[in-house]
Amino acid sequence: MTLVHRKTQRLMAALPIASLGVVAAVDLLTGPDLGYLSLLAVGPAFASLVGGVRRTVVIGVVALALSLLLALYNGLFGDRQSNMILISITGVTAASILATVGRQRRERELASVRSVAEVAQRVLLRPVPRRAGHLVAAVSYTSANAEARIGGDLYEVVTGPGGVRAIVGDVQGKGLEAVETAALVLGAFREAAHDEPDLRAVSGRLEKALNRRLSGEEFVTAILVEADSGGKLTLLNYGHPPPLILYANGAMTLAEPVETAPPLGLAVLEVEGPDPHQVAFGPGDQILLYTDGVIEARDRAGRFYPLPDRAFLLKNENPEAALEALRLDLVAHVDAPLHDDAAMLLLRCREPAGPPA
């Protein structure tokens, strides 16, 4: 729970008692002519926003007791106005109790669904191997704030006969459906990465799997990478943010595709996939794959996270430490809970590539 959320909870918890105190004070100062006693019903109404049934009942009883005491003080006890005020407070208290019961039931259901989704996501996004062929891999996943629904960010690294293949993607939407779609993509990728001769064939398997499930405007943005034994990277970008490549000589570039391509799962558009984009990738070079939760993270002034300007944080010799430094810098930039999950996968060439095992 964040500091802001805790402060909000404390403020809402104090609101019922504060409202009763304010109404009682105003009534004592102005006298019975203006009829402020009926406003005591706001106490139990506010109490239904946070806390349990017992607290709502206690606030309602306090409101009734205050109403009786102030009616005695004002000389209104037993008359029609006083009786109507008591009935109003009792009715509002009963309605607030019912509202509290409903709210608690919804909170339990939401917590249960969120827990299931989080467990499913943790099982789905298993740790990537630290060493994959001639590459070293590190991964970082930063969840959005507690109020946001579970997202569909995905990543995987597979070592196959032809080299190392990796994917980073983002499923449109949130919740269990997004997690289910991410599981479908990862399952198809893990199988195809071992069987297919090239990335286009791998992506074709992903398209088939998605088109059997998705409909309408649902889609998955993704980037597929293959690092072969000859010191070369092959990239296929399906509507995903371009990866950041940092060379051992200090140069840096965003691997923008020559032509844009639609995301996976949109076979209804009848558009061919992207052409493979190849770049050199030698010892000491590294590539950062990420989801849009990274570059779309805003600070309090609304400025996006400047990823290329922060690439120097990836110079640490330990890829995991480098990626953690970048993650902490991202969190510090936002200075608040993220509004979208942020996944990052760092691949670094650790030695000259030899013949495949």
Rank of each mutant, 00 (worst) to 15 (best):
S67Y: 02
N316T: 07
L338I: 02
L124H: 05
L269V: 08
P129T: 01
G163C: 05
R200D: 13
S38G: 15
R298Q: 13
S143E: 14
P352R: 12
A182W: 02
C349N: 13
V113I: 15
A280E: 15
L11C: 05
I295W: 05
L15G: 08
Y305N: 09
E207L: 10
F281C: 04
Q104T: 09
V113Q: 13
A201R: 14
P16V: 00
Q81I: 11
A251T: 15
V58W: 09
L246D: 01
N316G: 12
F46N: 05
L39P: 08
L64D: 08
V164E: 01
L135V: 03
A321W: 08
L37D: 02
F46Y: 14
A132R: 06
V57K: 08
L184S: 03
Y247V: 10
P127Y: 00
G52E: 06
A193L: 00
Y73K: 11
L210D: 03
V50Q: 14
Q81G: 12
A357E: 15
P308L: 09
E320V: 06
L314E: 00
Y247T: 12
P32V: 03
P257E: 07
A201W: 08
E296W: 03
V113S: 15
T260Y: 11
N74F: 06
L236E: 06
R10F: 10
P241F: 04
V53M: 09
H240A: 11
K232V: 15
P44Q: 07
A192R: 01
L69F: 11
N249R: 13
V128E: 10
T159H: 13
Q172K: 14
T291Q: 06
R108T: 12
L176N: 07
G31F: 07
N249I: 04
G152D: 00
Q278T: 15
A45E: 03
A132H: 03
L28G: 09
T93Q: 02
A336I: 04
L199G: 09
T93K: 05
A99R: 08
V294P: 04
S48M: 12
G284H: 11
R114W: 10
D292I: 07
L214R: 00
N211P: 01
R310T: 09
H5K: 12
F189I: 01
V185N: 05
E351V: 08
A178T: 00
T159S: 15
D198I: 06
R10T: 10
I17T: 15
L34R: 14
L70Q: 14
I97E: 06
G52Y: 07
G160S: 07
G152K: 00
G187W: 03
Q121K: 09
L39T: 10
A280H: 14
R130F: 12
V23E: 02
H339T: 14
N237R: 05
L235W: 10
P274C: 10
S96Q: 04
S229E: 15
R106S: 13
T221W: 03
V202A: 10
G52S: 03
L176V: 14
G78Y: 07
G35L: 03
A132N: 10
V334N: 00
V53N: 04
L184I: 07
P262F: 13
L124W: 06
E177I: 06
K7W: 10
G231H: 01
G216E: 00
P356R: 12
A353Y: 04
L347N: 02
D341C: 07
N318I: 10
N145K: 14
